[in-house]
């Protein structure tokens, strides 16, 4: 199993997000390989959900493309198996709790471990409910990646980051996923609050799309997460996306601090 610590070792991490099956399963595998080859340190694979309440229009549109391509949880695991024959890039899933619950928590993380998927980000599984899933994931060597947001108070951050050693997903802004030109949150303060309680790496996501933002956020945290901007490229270029993705990742990577 990939140790997520390696993702953040001696460099700022660039984390890319794609929706599984967008625009179809073969092209999606090519996109993941292209992202890895261009220097993505970790790829988050979104398992599409019918009602993605934490996601904005760009990712919702990608979910619809994936459903049109016949996405099911079983097909997503087949995709990962195909990807694993071509790259050893660290992977995590991002999906909603019901899909994991219906697959069965134990079976889900058994499959994750078999395919070297290091963990899952589950936006609708907050601190209050995560004990339902976290011990099962950890029994298979997988991480549940918690989220910290601009409204999370320090005493709550302390509880969220306790006993977490994958990474901490720092949500840059309130609302839903999607590119933003201005990120107003005092992220220095937020990341400083997290670091008071843990040495686990932090990665900032929600809204980041330009190299300038990557430079700025990379100076604050241990990594940056880019979702909607990448999904946009896939939406725009379809099967021609891999070269465009590589150019984009290289530009973003280059902008990150050493």
């Amino acid at each position: 199993m990939t140790n997520l610590k390696t993702v953040f070792a001696n460099k700022k991490a660039f984390i890319a997000f794609v929706v599984a099956g967008d625009p179809d399963f073969a092209a999606c595998a090519d996109n993941i390989v292209a992202l890895a080859e261009a220097g993505a340190d970790l790829v988050e694979i979104g398992i599409p959900f019918s009602d993605p309440v934490a996601d904005g229009p760009v990712i919702q549109a990608a979910d619809l493309r994936a459903f049109a391509a016949g996405s099911t949880t079983a097909k997503v695991f087949e995709l990962v198996a195909a990807v694993r024959k071509r790259t050893q890039v660290p992977l995590v899933f991002l999906t909603y709790c019901n899909l994991v619950y219906q697959y069965d928590y134990d079976k889900f993380f058994t499959r994750c471990a078999e395919l070297d998927v290091a963990g899952a980000i589950i936006p609708d599984l907050p601190l209050e409910e995560r004990d339902e899933v976290k011990p099962i994931a950890e029994a298979h060597g997988c991480h549940i990646i918690p989220l910290v947001t601009p409204t999370t108070p320090p005493e709550r951050i302390a509880k969220i980051v306790a006993n977490v050693d994958g990474f901490i997903y720092v949500v840059s802004s309130m609302g839903i996923t999607g590119t933003r030109d201005n990120i107003k949150t005092d992220l220095n303060q937020l990341v400083a609050n997290i670091r008071k309680y843990t040495t686990t790496p932090t990665a900032i996501g929600f809204g980041i799309h330009t190299p300038e933002q990557a430079a700025q956020m990379g100076a604050v945290a241990d990594g940056v997460i880019v979702g909607s901007a990448i999904v946009d490229i896939i939406g725009q270029y379809g099967r021609e996306a891999p070269t465009h993705l590589q150019d984009y990742v290289k530009a973003m990577r280059a902008a990150l601090p050493e």
């Binding site: 609708d124 599984l125 907050p126 209050e128 999370t152």
Partner: peptide
């Protein structure tokens, strides 16, 4: 029951 919602809403809830 429970509270299966994003962290962005947990503090307010």
């Amino acid at each position: 029951g429970g509270q299966y919602i994003p962290e962005t809403l947990m503090t307010e809830v």
